[in-house]
Design a protein around this nucleic acid. Sequence first.
DNA 1: CGTTGTTTTGAGATGAGTCAAGAACTGTGG
DNA 2: CCACAGTTCTTGACTCATCTCAAAACAACG
Lengths: 255, 255
Amino acid sequence: MQQGPQNGSTEIGRLRPFLANLASHVHLGEADLRGIAQLVTECRKVPQRTELVQGKQQSGEVQVILSGFACRIKTLHDRRQITSYLIPGDICDHRYLADRAPDQSVCAISAVEVAHIPVEALTDLCERQPRIMRALLRVSAIDSAIAAEWMVNLGLRTAQQRVAQLFCELYARLRVVQLAGSQAFDLPLTQAELGEALGLSTVHVNRTLQDLRRREVLTFRSGRAILHDRQKLAEIAAFDSHYLGLSDPTPNEAA
Amino acid sequence: MQQGPQNGSTEIGRLRPFLANLASHVHLGEADLRGIAQLVTECRKVPQRTELVQGKQQSGEVQVILSGFACRIKTLHDRRQITSYLIPGDICDHRYLADRAPDQSVCAISAVEVAHIPVEALTDLCERQPRIMRALLRVSAIDSAIAAEWMVNLGLRTAQQRVAQLFCELYARLRVVQLAGSQAFDLPLTQAELGEALGLSTVHVNRTLQDLRRREVLTFRSGRAILHDRQKLAEIAAFDSHYLGLSDPTPNEAA
DNA sequence: CGTTGTTTTGAGATGAGTCAAGAACTGTGG
DNA sequence: CCACAGTTCTTGACTCATCTCAAAACAACG
């Protein structure tokens, strides 16, 4: 299950979502991609419900989701708040940038493949390739922007709107890594897990989903989401994708 | 009102809160401080309720709060969500690190003094002084950690707990910049503004504050907060200051 | 086919919101 | 120093979105 560094191209294959994510913000050349791929020291599969990162525990490695879904979690008493969903291509914890221990734990929702990259090696690479540093900073900035949007969700939106906005967001993010079709995508979450992210009880998530289904806007069933009417969904959510920074990457600089 | 670069020491005086903030995470020497101070191109006072930063508008400058209070805001329809409070020493928007336009606007709550620092000059300085870069990244990481904690607030805590946690947080943060006494601090917010941050209606904030006052835990009145019983307040909030990263800075490296 | 986890339903409870109006401040100008 | 206008804070009464509890209906799976 553990594997040493491979020849670049194999790793590039596995890392595709991550590289796509980075490249969607800053144009990266073949050399950059290979450079990143070569830093991967380990690639492991973890079963669902496993803790990938323990809060308050520094590790010297960055973990990147290659496949499957995970989430960041904060716990209060015995209740959990999901502070973000991690999809393929996402970095588990951005605090490595500041050389700090994570303040949240990360938990696999489905079975997940993660790549490990030593922080030090990554930092070195960044020094040599500022483009890569920029890409990492942008990814991190977007992470913050998503957090802000989630605060709006929790603070201002109704249950309907929260669900709608979350599905809009996930659709947009999954498209970047080619994991969403034109109107559907896989999303291996339970309604309980949706509730933990949206600040709603499971029961209420259920009722809200039923309603959206009845209105033929969104169907979410057995791990698959179908957006029957994206227009309408975005309207309900008052969704403005701007915060996801999905505009075109800064113009090409080199190949 | 606008001022060119001054000799270092004057600027260091004004910038004290910012420098204290940075230095609380990474030890910085005199030279570092002076270096930062010299980058300030402008120092302006703005009246309360002024917009300091416009969302979606890139400016090439970082703004730092020197005195007074401000907040970041996201708007939905015509309702506002305050996504963070900015106190002296805080950076208005961290997206400069990623060369991106801010995605939130920043608004002065009280009259505020802000320093402007050109991003480019700052970036240059960071390249020469990695310690400074590290400090900036940590400050930004803490900003994210605060955001996560606010999500817990909005998603999991009751009105009581939200208010309690917010006051605990502000107390801790204000202490860093020497703006909180042992059990009281100035906080020029209205109850409505508290509500916009906490996801509560003004009326409910009012009732909650009254309750905390009656129980002799916290008094918040005419812009001043008195924490009669910090212990109790922290208990109510289930406050764990860990996320603020207030531990001692990494050990001294140079002067 | 029993076990376990997830989704649905129903019914009743409640925290927080809304609306509306009055009281208490704050600052301003005469 | 007072009167006035504009906020901000309080209160009361009523509504409502969402929660809790509890049990039933489904699914998935070895």
